[in-house]
Design a protein around this nucleic acid. Structure first.
Length: 81
DNA sequence: GTTGAGCGT
């Protein structure tokens, strides 16, 4: 299940994101979108979870919570299209 | 050396 995470702290790393989601389920991979040129965080990222139920719980649980001191938004990710 | 809605090199 692809999960979209936004309003991240510009200092939040993928490991912090992964650890945050691993507390609610198994995380297959986590990625924070950063600028291609400056490598600065765009403020949002993606988390991939092999279990859909754990993913939904992670979304419902981690949504509107604090990460690195910033309230984050967790939703299902859209296909890149 | 910043900012704060939004969907990926």
């Amino acid at each position: 299940m692809n999960i979209f995470v936004a309003k991240l702290n510009y200092a939040t790393s993928e490991d912090a994101l992964r650890q945050a989601f691993e507390e609610f389920g198994t995380v297959d991979s986590a990625k924070v979108i950063m600028d291609r040129d400056t490598q600065r965080s765009k403020g949002f990222g993606f988390v991939e979870m092999p279990n859909d139920d754990e993913g939904n719980q992670a979304i419902s649980s981690l949504n509107d919570t604090e990460l690195d001191g910033r309230t984050i938004v967790v939703k299902k990710a859209n296909p890149r299209g």
